[in-house]
Design a protein around this nucleic acid. Structure first.
Length: 282
DNA sequence: GCCAGAATAT
DNA sequence: AATATTCTGG
């Protein structure tokens, strides 16, 4: 119980309804094992959580501990999440692609600005490297993917126009700032669509814990088509009722049934990490 | 004081 | 290596 072994305590307590779309993405076992099933959306209050979750999270057995100022588990950027991230960035345009906005557009609850910021930082490095790579070469060098060069990032198609340069000069980059920073966004008119972009909806997020040290590990798939994406609502997840209508437990995509115990490089006994994954098509 | 971004730290 | 946290500057 050293580093990250605390659980969500409190974050966004919207007394609104929950839309637990715990699709068949989670193995029943897993779900039951942790309590993800259909409640824990938006972790309401620290003192409100199911005992299961609570004691599961703290091996120390403290429920009345410094409820505030606790650390959240490390976020695991699953390919799905990353895709969402990329989509958001792509649609925002480099200009508006700042952590806060991205976070809002992603609409993944539990995601913090810092999470996104950190990821964004790395993503930018990735882009940068990739640019220099694609620029500098042009002959002789292998096409892409040199193992060590890409891992997660490789799983999502990098948007065509991710320029790194002065964008504000004369070219009003593009797209619409669909960013509404209203704490109380009314009903999100699902019919608003920009005449320029593809559309697919992003579904509601879900939680999942992933254990290290001989634990569970969601299989990462993620490498599919990219179509762009449209993100729904800023602020708070209301009713992510979209997306998931595409591929329910049909033979097409088993989702995350795979429970690989791939523990590479994880020398830290038991670390619990959080994996939020949006259900959506990809 | 908030936020973005780089620099560190774990 | 992947995320997190801290440090700077705006």
């Amino acid at each position: 119980m050293r580093e990250e072994d605390w659980m969500w305590e409190e974050q966004l307590p919207p007394p609104e309804e929950l839309m637990p779309i715990s699709q068949s993405l989670i193995t029943p076992d897993l779900a039951l094992a942790f309590d993800i099933p259909s409640g824990p959306h938006t972790p309401p209050h620290p003192s409100n959580l199911s005992p299961a979750a609570t004691d599961l999270a703290d091996s120390a057995g403290n429920s009345d501990e410094p409820a505030r100022t606790l650390k959240r588990p490390r976020l695991v950027w699953t390919p799905q999440l990353h895709k969402r991230f990329v989509d958001a960035v792509a649609h925002l345009g480099i200009k508006n692609a700042v952590p806060k906005t991205i976070m809002q557009l992603m609409s993944v609850d539990g995601l913090t600005r810092e999470n996104v910021a950190s990821h964004l930082q790395k993503y930018r490095l990735y882009l940068k490297r990739m640019q220099s790579l694609s620029s500098g070469n042009g002959a002789g060098c292998g096409p892409v993917a040199d193992a060590a060069t890409e891992h997660l990032f490789a799983s999502s198609p990098v948007p065509p126009h991710f320029l790194r340069g002065a964008v504000g000069g004369s070219g009003p980059e593009h797209f619409f700032p669909y960013v509404a920073v209203t704490p109380a966004p009314p009903p999100p008119p699902p019919h608003h669509h920009h005449p320029h972009h593809n559309h697919h909806h992003l579904a509601g997020p879900q939680f999942h814990r992933q254990f290290g040290g001989g634990g569970v590990n969601v299989g990462m798939n993620g490498q599919f088509e990219h179509g762009g994406g449209f993100v729904g609502r800023p602020g708070q997840v209301g009713h992510p009722r979209v997306g998931i209508g595409g591929m329910h437990g049909e033979g097409g995509m088993p989702g995350y049934a795979a429970v690989d115990d791939l523990e590479s490089g994880n020398t830290s006994g038991g670390r619990k990490v959080l994996t939020l994954f949006p259900t959506g098509e990809d």
